[in-house]
Simulated scan of single mutants.
Amino acid sequence: MKKLTIRARLTLIYGGLFLLAGTVLLAVTYVLVDQRLTHGLGFNLRGSGSRSVPLPQSGTPITAEQAETLRGLVRQVQEDARQDALDSLLTQGGVALAVVTVAAVAFGWLLAGRALQPLNQITGTARRIAGADSAGRGLHERIALDAPADEVKELADTFDLMLERLDRSFDGQRRFVANASHELRTPLAINRSLVELAITRPDAPAELRQLGETLLAVNERHERLIDGLLTLADSENELSEHTEVDLAEVAGHLSDQTAGRTTLAVSVDLNPARTVGDPVLLERLAQNLLDNAVRHNVGEGGWMTVATTTVGGRAVLTVTNSGPVVPGYEVESMFLPFRRLNRERAAGNRGFGLGLSIVRAVARAHGGTVHALPRPGGGLIVTVSLPTPGTG
C-alpha cells in the first residue's frame, strides 16, 4: 500500500477535524432544536397542557370523547411539525456540512502546501546537489531560505552551513591533489634527465646502464601516476573548454595507434557521434578505455572492438574486449580510484587503478554516464554515453 505524503496527511487531518467539529455542532443543534420544538409547540385544550387554548363559545357542549379526539389531532399536528423541522435540519445541515468539508479539505491542501514549501525548497536543493556530475560538484549552491525565524528556517541555515563546510573541504582536496601533482612533476623530470645523461655517457659501465634503465622505468611509472592524478583532479572541476568533438574521429585515431603497438585483433565500427566538451579530456577517456581493454587481454587470440554511434540524442562510445571472466560483483569496484581486481593484484599487475575512475569522472564532467558489463565468455563491455550538441 502506497504511503501518503505529509501534505496528504495534513490535509486529511485538517478535513477530519473540521468534519468532526461540524458533526458535533450539528448533533448539538439537533438536540437543542428538538427540545425547543417539544416545549414550544406543546399545547392542549382547556388548560390541560403547557398552553391552554379555550374552546369556542358556540353554545354547543363538547363531549369528553370529542375533546379527546381534538387533543389527539393537535398532538399529531405537533409531532408532524416537529419531525418535519428536524428532518429539514438534518438534510440541509448534512448537505451544508458536506459542502463546507470539501471546501475545508481543498483549503487544507493549499494551506499544507504553503506550509511545506520551505521543506520542498530544501529537498529540491539537496536533490540537485546529490544529482551533480561528480562528488563535490554543486556544493556551491545554497538554500538561502527567506522565511520567518522558526524551526524550518533553522534547519535550512544549518544545511547551508554544512554545504559550505563540505564545499571548502572538497575544493581544498582538489587543490591539494593538483598542487601536489604539479610540484612532483618537476623533480621527476629532473630525475629522468639526470638518469638519461648518466646512462648515455660513453664510459658508463653496463651495471650503471642497467640500473639507469630500471630507474627510468620506475620514474616513468611515477610520472604516469602523477599524470593520472592531475587528469582526475581536472575532470572533477568545471569544464573550461566546450568544443564540438566527434568521438568517431578520436576513437579511430587511438585505435590505429593501439593496433600498431599490440598483437590484439582490433576492429572498429565508427559512426558519427558528436558531443561537446574538453577535447583533451575526451581523448584521455577514450585512451583509458583502450588501454584497459589491452591490459585485461591475456594470452593468444585476444581481440577488442571499438564502436561509436548516436542513439536518442546521445553520443555513444563502446569498447568490447576479450579476456578472463569478470565477476559481476567486482565491476563497480573497478571504477573506484586505486582499486584493482583481486586477480590483477595476485598476478602483479602494475596498473594504478585510475583508468576507469578517470573515465567515469570525465564522463560525469561532460554530463554523461559510463557503464560496464561482464561478457559471458570473458572480458568487458564498457559503454560511455555523452550528450550531443544542443541537448546539454
Rank of each mutant, 00 (worst) to 15 (best):
A365S: 14
L208I: 08
L166K: 07
G59Q: 02
P56R: 03
F352Q: 08
A248I: 00
A198D: 07
L32W: 02
K3Q: 14
A365N: 10
G377C: 03
Q83N: 13
R221C: 00
N297D: 14
R128A: 10
R71C: 12
E213C: 00
T123A: 15
N237D: 13
V33S: 06
S48L: 15
T310C: 00
S322T: 06
P337N: 04
L211S: 14
G379M: 06
A363Y: 01
T11D: 06
L119F: 11
A259W: 00
G94E: 09
P202H: 15
G138M: 02
Q117C: 07
R343H: 13
T263E: 15
A217R: 13
R375S: 02
R127Y: 09
V152M: 05
A307D: 05
V77M: 15
R364I: 06
P279N: 05
D133M: 02
H39Q: 13
D256V: 14
P272F: 03
L163Q: 07
S48Y: 11
Q76E: 13
S357K: 02
S235L: 04
R343A: 12
L163V: 05
G108E: 06
V250K: 01
R114F: 10
A27D: 04
P387Q: 11
A307S: 09
L211N: 14
R360C: 02
T158I: 08
R137L: 02
L208P: 06
R7N: 10
L336S: 15
S169L: 14
P387K: 12
G49Q: 07
F107T: 12
V195S: 08
F107L: 15
G15T: 00
S52N: 12
T23Y: 12
G301F: 06
L111P: 07
K2H: 10
D84V: 12
S169I: 12
R314L: 09
R75C: 08
V102E: 09
P118T: 03
G47Y: 07
L90Q: 13
R201V: 08
L264G: 06
S267G: 08
H182W: 09
L97I: 09
D291H: 14
T231V: 00
Q66P: 01
P187M: 01
T200E: 10
L45W: 00
I199M: 04
D203K: 04
V100S: 14
M1W: 11
A361T: 00
L116H: 06
S52T: 09
G136C: 05
P376I: 00
L73K: 14
A363E: 02
L97A: 10
R284T: 10
T258A: 15
L17I: 11
T275K: 01
A144S: 08
I358V: 08
A286M: 03
D34S: 15
P56E: 01
L239T: 05
S193G: 11
